[in-house]
Design a protein around this nucleic acid. Structure first.
Lengths: 130, 130
DNA sequence: GGTGGGGCTTCCAGTTAGTGGAAGGTCAAG
DNA sequence: CTTGACCTTCCACTAACTGGAAGCCCCACC
């Protein structure tokens, strides 16, 4: 299967698949003409990567998870640790964004949003606290 | 005031201040020796930028907001629009992260996390839905 | 057999918002 | 006069791709 078909099956752009090969995540063997030939194994790895990426794991996380996935003697403990660290990071990001949202929506609410120049948003940015 | 002092006052690293000059956000005049000389105006702009960045505005948003801030004939409507778009983006990001967190914490919860190789996290990534 | 269009290859450059480091000029203290 | 801290510029690197150019390759159509 050529890269275009593999891209369609895995919902990853061809560019991304080539990039994953570049950084050593998934290598497909080549046909005589130099085209990449994707088999079931490569498709599975790509799908694995796609899912892991949509779950927000970094590429380096993916590398680790892929290695664990391939290691039949792995312990689930290792996988769980990676996932838990990632989960903590997500929770922190959510908390940060929520406090950000609070501040920003307060500012937006207090702004008239009309033709006049007075603007509490700019005042806040400039450091004049209300 | 030299860049080091300006950095301390504005809580921005010197590198960042130089970068902001590079991309045309804030330019400080120079002393005879070539050192940047920061006055009150530049410090205010830098503080404005620092605050806007911690609120998650992009550099391009900052450029717009800075221009509006300097324009005494601005209408607060324009500012509010920028802030509202940003707020919407934040809300979307929060929603995405929360659904992510849900999925991931479900997976983590179902993983034994011991020395056995069975792992629902990897199963999910591989596409075997529980 | 030639041609056209699409798909494939590689490589280079750009994205965001800085950060790290090297090479060299400047300043104030001892 | 030297030392160390500070300043300057410039280049390279980060994450995870994405866009585009130049050049093969394959297949269908005439």
């Amino acid at each position: 299967m050529n890269i275009g078909a593999a891209a369609e099956r895995t919902c990853l752009p061809p560019k991304t698949i080539r990039y994953y090969e570049d950084i050593g995540l998934v290598a497909a063997p080549r046909d005589a003409n130099g085209y990449r030939a994707f088999g079931a194994a490569e498709l599975h790895k790509l799908a694995f990567l796609g899912r892991a990426r949509t779950l927000g794991f970094t590429i380096e996380d993916c590398r680790t998870l892929l290695a664990l996935w391939e290691d039949k003697r792995r312990s689930s403990e290792n996988v769980k640790r990676v996932a838990e660290v990632h989960l903590k990071a997500i929770e922190q990001k959510i908390a940060m964004l929520q406090s950000l949202k609070q501040t920003l929506s307060d500012l937006v609410e207090n702004c008239a949003g009309d033709e006049r120049p007075e603007c509490p948003i700019l005042d806040d940015l400039a450091g004049k606290r209300i």
